[in-house]
Design a protein around this nucleic acid. Sequence first.
DNA 1: TAAAACATGTAAGTAGTTACATGATTCC
DNA 2: GGAATCATGTAACTACTTACATGTTTTA
Lengths: 176, 176
Amino acid sequence: MNIQDVILGILCKQPHSGYEIKRHFEEYFSFFFDASFGTIYPTLSKLEGLNLITKEAVRQEGKPDKNVYTITEAGKEHFRSYLVQPAEKEVLRSDFLMHLYFGDMADEETMNTLLREGLQNKRDMYTDLEQKMNQLDGKLSPHQKLCIELGLVQYKAFIMKLEHVLESSGEGPAPS
Amino acid sequence: MNIQDVILGILCKQPHSGYEIKRHFEEYFSFFFDASFGTIYPTLSKLEGLNLITKEAVRQEGKPDKNVYTITEAGKEHFRSYLVQPAEKEVLRSDFLMHLYFGDMADEETMNTLLREGLQNKRDMYTDLEQKMNQLDGKLSPHQKLCIELGLVQYKAFIMKLEHVLESSGEGPAPS
DNA sequence: TAAAACATGTAAGTAGTTACATGATTCC
DNA sequence: GGAATCATGTAACTACTTACATGTTTTA
């Protein structure tokens, strides 16, 4: 998986500008993928050069003009070949877990802060994702809904485990 | 968090060669961090140049010689300053979820394979991690054990959700 | 009139991977 | 003698991020 595949996937459904693609990343799958404008725009140029998408300038009222990209038949074919490949290994990079792993070298105060902030952070992520699912409910395919639900159950498991640990460590109940 | 911090953290406990550091990555935290030899060796040279670690050639019997690196006081100080920083945002990159998200564009057979392979993959990861925890039980600090447990509960939640989905999709019970 | 949102793009740098290259030593 | 493991390193490349640069339009 690289950004090219993801952009082609988004454009399969309907044409979008680079700005809209970035919004799509944030709205629909920020929890398992992200990319910056610094990658999106050059990638769109590259895909256009490969004739996998075409560009069209669109004037807007009340907003600056935008470049809207449409996928070509070759682009769709390219995306289909991505889709039937086996999924690559999932990669997690967690600075929280790294801090926790080396926790014995830090003082108790630092570790308490780490755990509390880690817990609050996951609670916020859970709430955001849940809200997103409720807002988007009608627009989501069953597959897309499952994506979000898989995120939610994993967050929930993490939260419950950490709450349990904080509760039984003599710090009193973790505040909700 | 970058590789430098992680290597310094490992060397805080005891001196290691580059090869041993790679083994440590694989054994103790492959599920939330990884790095290749192509990064480890240049990073060790760089850390040595910064006087954060020192190198010593060690002859071994029955094995090739190795370069063993020891952390300096400056290196320890550097690592401590990493440890008290707030943890960076966790990053997940999941090709499985991306495939699932675009599932409507694939046929049923492809999606079934994806879900089954995704489930089996997580089950394998769960088993590996569980085995590791049991093997390492005596060597692990409570913090380190919690790291692994947080991994396990999240894997478990993913597995249970996917099993439930596969069971109720008329495909018969998912094989264990 | 300033901030926020919309919109596009580039340049420099970071942080890594993969593949290559080499060699010792052990075990089957 | 060949595979596996131990061991180190480099070169080319990939894939990004961050910061910079610019400009429009709306909203408070």
